[in-house]
Write a protein that binds this DNA or RNA. Structure first.
Length: 803
RNA sequence: GCCUGAGUGGCGGAAUAGGUAGACGCACAGGACUUAAAAUCCUGCGAGAUUUAACCCUCGUGUCGGUUCAAGUCCGACCUCAGGCACCA
């Protein structure tokens, strides 16, 4: 039992006092920027899941430094947001104080784990010195027309009288009181993210994100290519629809328009069944945010009577319906319905007894629609489509589009699922939006010199019962003068979403104390980009997309040097409870890292979390396995008794040492931490079998283990009389010496392994075959059989094919 | 429904380019040391058949097919689990 408490404290102090991990902007060394998602400092403290990713990136950072890089491995706090506000309301303390407390806890925990963060760069998104720049950047967005106000529906709990996030309104009921959530129109700040859809797609080519991360982004953006088509209304007027299947245009038997769209409002004067239509619109508005699978089993809707539309391709008159499966804010808010070839249209037609018309042959449309994923690329031909009848779907797609385009009633367009970013929150604990409303001048941005716009220091931060932000109640905050005309005016009282501060924090780490800019161009040019960004899978879609959007805007305003500032993005698996379920207090399966550090030491916890499994996969906690890692460290310590004075590798360990250096170096840079640990265990097993090992043998083991278990390795290294590992070069290996002189080769007969032979490496085919055939066991198998052929792969295998 | 990831011993998981499946660790069992326990060390440990024993043999990486001298790995179809998105025309 070694005194890990004393040793770990000693080295943590040493690193602190020597500023061992300080990153110097502008250093001659090559920069390398390693980033882990900064945590939300919750009241429950650091999670063992944090320890997993921070240790992994820490190991990479420690190794990269020793390879001669100027490593930036920073840490900070993402501390705005609802949980801190909620916690503060519950415990009657100011969120600011709660956050301060929590940060202290988190930081203390991180220090005890020995992470090599450059603490001199620490900041919190809630620091006025930081959010000043978040606000400043918002002003730039506004000035470039990227921020605007719009009326959008929000989730509203009529009982709690509060606005709810989508998460808090899951299932259509308020998470706190269980009341049904309704939709309420509210004027909100928006960022024009949809304008960047194409750029955000293209930008992925300039990143090294994991393929699944890229796919997540592509999916979220949701591009679809199709045709926008103008449709005339009988008796005047027209509207447009969007379709990706223009080849089915002859199959239109009706149109469906969105109950929440603009079109129905325009048509209203001509509607004959206004009451029915209005009732349906009303009904939809109530359920639009509710759990759709529950409420929208069938395809509800009503006919818009008195108005008919004309199919532009053949002049056929068809009815128009209202249906809530058509969304007001996607495409044009209206669709052409081809029940034979679209499942939703099919269901709607069945529900409302509408006509169906098949226009693509080769399918059966009695029970369900014959859809594009079934007919595309199969050579299916059009029917019932005038001059296009007989063409393949692919030919018809082009031909029909061309014809309609020539007539000037259709355009090729792209649509994106990604909407503009709703940027307002009716909360206290967020960055105030630096906008002022003046009766005369309208919305006026604050003067940049007046930033930061501070959150007022008050005792009241509970939400108002009108759905306004708590800030709305604070008159000293609200009342101001217009920066333009000087008249009395009111401040915006909404705050920014939690995502705001985390959309650019990685830039601030490059130059965290800059008072003149959010980060200097020089500093950003020096650090170049985030080389390696690690975070949770749950953030690879939204957070990463927001951050990229934010950076792309800054780039377009000449405020950052690159359009994509993040190069590699990886994500880690969760640490689950020992019952294989997500850790949660209610399940009673939470492991507190403090307890583990106390009982086993930080090094053991670090080794265990690296060893527990595939880094990108979830892994359950297992205390027995943790004990095994403690045993491993104890064995490393005990090896010291065998160390001789020699400064050279033992001859018979040379190969395994070189192999280990190669493997560990590779693994630590390829997220294969678990096999890095197992490699070191194998090395220790080899050392254990010997009576004595040399000082050099031992030293290289400590070198390789150091990134994962930094404290004990420094201590043992010091006891050998060496200077600290953190200041010395990463060991190198000799490729020549990574392969044994003699290797075992499997000999197969008809693909089944029957024997192994020991032979010098790089032996020729002939030598291999000769030795293989001379084996008694092999002879037993092949005697009396005809040898068809022998396949020999040097250094790998011999396979004798017999008949 | 769609997208993504994953299915390998009792468990966590290995297997750079298709080439000895189960590395490494845990758990378990037996043994050594000890008055005893802990710690430590040694041995065994996918299933089955056979055998005094050893070797050897058969089967085995979610299922079913295929390609290949050779498949956990490649191809096709499917099943299960986890995560994300969900009426996006």
């Amino acid at each position: 039992m070694y005194n890990f408490k004393k040793i770990e404290k000693k080295w943590q102090d040493y690193w602190d006092n020597n500023e061992s991990f300080k990153a110097i902007t502008g250093s001659e060394k090559k920069p390398y920027y390693i980033l882990v998602e900064f945590p939300y400092p919750s009241g429950s403290g650091l999670h063992v899941g944090h320890v997993r990713s921070y240790t992994a990136q820490d190991a990479l950072a420690r190794m990269k430094r020793r390879e001669g890089y100027n490593v930036l491995y920073p840490m900070g706090w993402d501390a705005f947001g609802a949980p801190a506000e909620q916690y503060a309301i519950k415990n009657h303390i100011h969120p600011k104080d709660a956050v301060k407390e929590n940060i202290k806890t988190f930081k203390g925990q991180m220090k005890k784990l020995g992470f090599s963060f450059d603490w001199s760069r620490e900041f919190s998104t809630t620091d006025p010195e930081y959010y000043k720049w978040t606000q400043w950047q918002f002003l730039q967005f506004y000035k470039h027309g990227m921020a605007y106000k719009a009326t959008v529906p929000v989730n509203w709990c009529p009982n709690c009288k509060t606005v709810l996030s989508n998460e808090d309104a899951a299932g259509g009921v308020c998470e706190r009181c269980g009341t049904s959530v309704i939709q309420k129109e509210k004027s909100q700040w928006m960022l024009k993210m949809s304008a960047y859809a194409e750029d955000l797609l293209k930008g992925l080519d300039d990143t090294n994100f994991k393929e699944r991360v890229k796919l997540g982004q592509i999916n979220w953006i949701g591009k679809s290519t199709g045709v926008e088509l103008d449709v005339n209304i009988v008796g005047g007027g027209k509207f447009s629809i969007f379709t990706t299947c223009i080849e089915t245009v002859y199959g239109i038997t009706f149109f469906v328009i969105a109950p929440d769209g603009k079109l129905i409002k325009e048509l209203m004067p001509r509607v004959e069944n206004k009451d029915e239509v209005n009732a349906y619109i009303e009904e939809t508005s109530k359920k639009s945010s509710m759990d759709r699978t529950e409420l929208n089993k069938g395809k509800t809707g009503v006919e818009v009577k008195g108005i008919k539309a004309i199919n532009p391709i053949n002049g056929k008159e068809v009815p128009i319906f209202l249906g809530d499966f058509v969304l007001g804010d996607y495409g044009t808010g209206a669709v052409m319905a081809v029940p034979s070839h679209d499942q939703r249209d099919f269901e709607y037609a069945k529900e409302h007894n509408l006509e169906m018309l098949e226009v693509i042959s080769g399918g059966d449309t009695t029970a369900k629609a014959f859809e594009k994923n079934e007919y595309l690329g199969k050579g299916c031909k059009l029917i019932n489509s005038e001059e296009f009848t007989g063409m393949t779907v692919e030919e018809a797609k082009e031909a029909i589009t061309n014809k309609l385009e020539k007539e000037g009633i259709a355009r090729r367009v792209n649509n994106y699922k990604m909407r503009d970013w709703i940027f307002s929150r009716q909360r206290f604990w967020g960055e105030p939006i630096p906008m002022i409303y003046c009766e005369k001048c309208g919305w006026v941005p604050m003067e940049e010199k007046d930033l930061p716009l501070l959150l007022p220091d008050v005792a009241e931060y509970e939400p108002t019962d009108t759905g306004e932000s708590p800030l709305a109640k604070i008159e000293s905050f609200v009342n101001t003068t217009c920066p333009k005309c000087g008249c009395p005016a009111k401040r915006e009282t909404d705050t920014m979403p939690n995502w705001a501060g985390s959309s650019w924090y990685f830039l601030r780490f490059m130059d965290p104390h800059n008072e003149k800019e959010f980060a200097s161009m020089d500093a950003m040019k020096y650090w170049n980009r985030v080389d390696w960004y690690n975070g949770g899978m749950e953030h690879t879609a939204r957070h990463l997309l927001y951050a990229r959007f934010w950076v792309q805007m800054l780039y377009n305003f000449d405020l950052v040097p690159k359009k994509e500032m993040i190069w590699t993005r990886v994500s880690h698996g969760m640490v689950l409870g020992d019952n294989n379920e997500k850790m949660s207090k209610s399940k009673g399966n939470v492991i507190n890292p403090d307890d583990i550090v106390n009982d086993y030491g930080a090094d053991t916890l670090r080794v265990y979390e690296m060893f527990m499994g595939d880094y990108e996969q979830d892994a359950p906690w297992n205390t027995d396995s943790l004990k095994g890692c403690k045993r491993f460290i104890d064995r490393v310590i005990r090896l010291k008794e065998k160390v001789t004075d020699s400064e050279e590798y033992s001859k018979d360990l040379e190969v395994i040492i070189n192999k280990s250096i190669k493997k560990v170096s590779y693994d630590l840079t390829h997220m294969a931490y678990n096999t890095a640990v197992s490699t070191l265990m194998i090395l220790v097993n080899a050392y254990d079998e010997k009576e004595t090992i040399t000082k050099a043998d031992y030293r290289v083991l400590l070198d390789l283990l150091n990134p994962i278990a930094p404290h004990i390795t420094e201590e043992l290294n010091e006891s050998l009389g060496y200077s600290p590992i953190c200041d010395r070069k990463w060991p190198t290996y000799d490729e020549e010496k990574t392969i044994d002189n003699e290797i075992d080769i499997a000999v197969q007969v008809n693909g089944k392994v029957r024997d192994t032979i020991r032979i010098k490496k790089d032996s020729s085919k002939e030598e291999l075959e000769e030795l293989a055939l001379s084996s008694d066991i092999i002879q037993k198998w092949i005697t009396g059989k005809e040898i068809v052929k022998i396949i020999t792969v040097p250094n790998r295998i011999v396979n004798i094919v017999i008949r």
